[in-house]
């Protein structure tokens, strides 16, 4: 049997092209292996071969979803792969979204198996877990050593159309698929056994985990904007020049509360971004591009809004854990409420 043909997708960073300053890199096809493909090659042995690697900048892909998808699909089609693999994306949100989008498209358009790998808090997991196999990884590239073997193993199985085991066995994120199996004990017996274990305080494994929905009911609309007090919040890392609280450029361990009461607009003199997950050139030059203080001051003057709150809240939403983000907002949402803020505009990069 000839070798399984693999096409691999990487972002600009993992392809070694560059960081955020290269995130607008357009789709590119390279013959053979690039970067993390080496780790996969080692695992594949003689069974499979990465015939080509497609590279695209994370910003370019997410900002030009349609064109980029079409270009990339064309490149993949021409390479006639038996399987398509993307990532691992670890905890990189835009990279995860790109990997998932392309995998889903390839699966639907070309009808071949696809596979990606991400950290559980990567938004790409919730976006695509129902559509794809996504191998579980650590939150940073330090997890490549365990990610590569798991990806390669499942990829070979998928390409050879072997039976795929449950998520725990194969190491992929739960997809919400139920499978009928025969058990030697009746359901009633298993249920009673489980109940007894529960009553005794022993460990047990449920056969039907309840889904966790965490939707928040939308708040009522603002009735009279001309009397409303608006506050700005951002995950785009806008901070006073010099970053006095030293908010980290990624995995932020804090947020900041900053006074803008005297400012008609943010400028490169007053403010900058602490965010390490996008090219900071544009935000540093004109921070209103991320936190629109100037526009809201105009609206305050014209009476479109009542007032702009004297403080804004900011953190860096780059690899910052969901638990931390939640804790920050829990804290400052109460302050906003106590300060009589009517509504919030939250900007993200």
């Amino acid at each position: 049997m000839s070798k399984i043909r693999v096409v691999h997708y990487l972002n600009q960073f993992f392809a070694g092209i560059g960081g955020e300053e290269k995130a607008d890199h357009k789709p590119e096809l390279r013959i053979g292996i690039v970067g993390p493909g080496m780790a996969l090659k080692k695992e594949f042995g003689e069974e499979a071969e990465i015939v080509s690697t497609i590279i695209c900048g994370d910003s370019y892909f997410n900002e030009n979803l349609k064109e980029a998808s079409a270009q990339i699909l064309k490149m993949i089609r021409e390479q006639k792969p038996d399987i398509f693999m993307a990532g691992p994306a670890f905890n990189a949100g835009r990279y995860g979204a790109a990997c998932g989008t392309i995998c889903k498209m390839v699966k639907e358009e070309l009808g071949i198996p696809v596979l990606s790998a991400m950290y559980e808090e990567n938004p790409g997991v919730d976006m695509f877990r129902k559509d794809l196999f996504i191998i579980k990884t650590a939150d940073s590239a330090a997890g490549m050593r365990t990610a590569a073997p798991a990806m390669a193993k499942l990829a070979l199985k998928l390409a050879k159309k072997e039976e795929i085991g449950p998520p725990e066995a194969e190491g992929y994120h739960v997809r919400g698929i139920r499978k009928n199996v025969f058990r030697d004990k009746l359901g009633s017996k298993r249920a009673v056994e489980m109940l007894v274990k529960k009553l005794k305080g022993d460990e047990f494994v449920t056969e039907y985990p309840m889904p966790q929905f965490d939707n928040v009911t939308p708040s009522p609309a603002v009735k009279d904007m001309s009397r409303a007090k608006l506050a700005l919040v951002t995950s785009g890392g806008i901070v006073p020049k010099g970053n006095p609280d030293r908010i980290e450029s990624s995995s932020a361990s804090k947020y900041g509360k900053y006074d803008i009461s005297g400012l008609a607009a943010l400028t490169s003199e007053t403010s900058e971004t602490a965010h390490g997950g996008y090219d900071p050139v544009y935000a540093n030059k004109d921070p209103n591009r991320v936190l629109p203080v100037d526009a809201l001051r105009d609206m305050e003057k014209s009476g479109r809004i009542g007032s702009l709150h004297n403080y804004y809240y900011s953190t860096v939403g780059n690899g910052t854990s969901v638990a931390n983000s939640r804790a920050y907002a829990l804290e400052f949402a109460h302050e906003l409420k106590n300060d009589g803020v009517t509504a919030v505009i939250l900007t993200s990069t």
Binding site: A329, L330, A333, H334, K337, V344, I345, S348
Partner: peptide
């Protein structure tokens, strides 16, 4: 953060590129 603000009863609009 959007959800916690909304949960506190403050209407919030999220402006972002990757919808």
């Amino acid at each position: 953060m959007v959800k916690e603000i909304e949960r506190a009863g403050i209407p919030v609009v999220h402006i972002c590129t990757v919808v």
